[in-house]
């Protein structure tokens, strides 16, 4: 009877962070592989144009790796990373406003990419994006962290530096306004 191959232990985020702090570049690369898509989804939903998505993801990871010494494990690495992504997006929005070339958020849905895919994305998604764009930043981020990423209020509160009760209130306000917008 053939013996099952031993399953290699998957290093935790904490182990990868410690390895990166010790100078292991591949640990940083593994963290990018692990969280880049979730981050991209979060940023795209929060209003990042697809053309800028790659740059914003890179910038978020750079900031996170540089500031990782301040990450105390108060929440998951991914939650912390997404909140940094929110700051990066806000800064990019400010720069875009100053440049006044293409105002960020004019159309948060991708204007490039496969036209067929865009067509089938559906009106509801477009309306939700539009509704999200109109929300205050805190409500938008709490909603996305909860509804899209599936985090608990305690986790969200720890990442955003607020209380679980306040996070719950932000979420409910967001849901109420989004429902009104979708109807």
């Amino acid at each position: 009877m053939p013996q099952a191959e031993p399953v290699a232990a998957v290093p935790t985020d904490a182990a990868l962070i410690a390895a990166w702090q010790g100078g292991d570049e591949q640990a940083a690369a593994e963290l990018v592989r692990r969280h880049a898509r979730a981050l991209a989804r979060f940023l795209a939903s929060a209003g990042a144009p697809e053309a800028d998505l790659d740059d914003l993801v890179q910038e978020t990871f750079i900031r996170a790796f540089r500031a990782v010494g301040r990450f105390r494990g108060q929440c998951r690495f991914r939650t912390w990373l997404l909140t940094i992504g929110g700051n990066v997006l806000k800064d990019a929005g400010r720069r875009a406003k100053r440049a006044t070339v293409v105002p960020l958020g004019e159309d948060v849905r991708a204007t490039d990419g496969d036209p067929h895919e865009r067509a089938v994305a559906g009106e509801a998604e477009g309306r939700l994006l539009e509704g999200l764009r109109r929300l205050p930043r805190m409500q938008r981020e709490v909603f996305l962290l909860r509804a899209q990423q599936g985090f608990e209020y305690e986790e969200i509160a720890a990442a955003l530096g607020t209380s679980p009760g306040a996070a719950r209130v932000h979420y409910h306000h967001a849901v109420k306004r989004l429902k009104e917008h979708l109807q």
């Binding site: 979730a38 991209a40 989804r41 795209a44 998604e125």
Partner: peptide, 10 residues
């Protein structure tokens, strides 16, 4: 809906 947002771009 929220889970589907940005999935294509990601």
């Amino acid at each position: 809906l929220a889970k589907r947002l940005g999935a294509g771009a990601a």
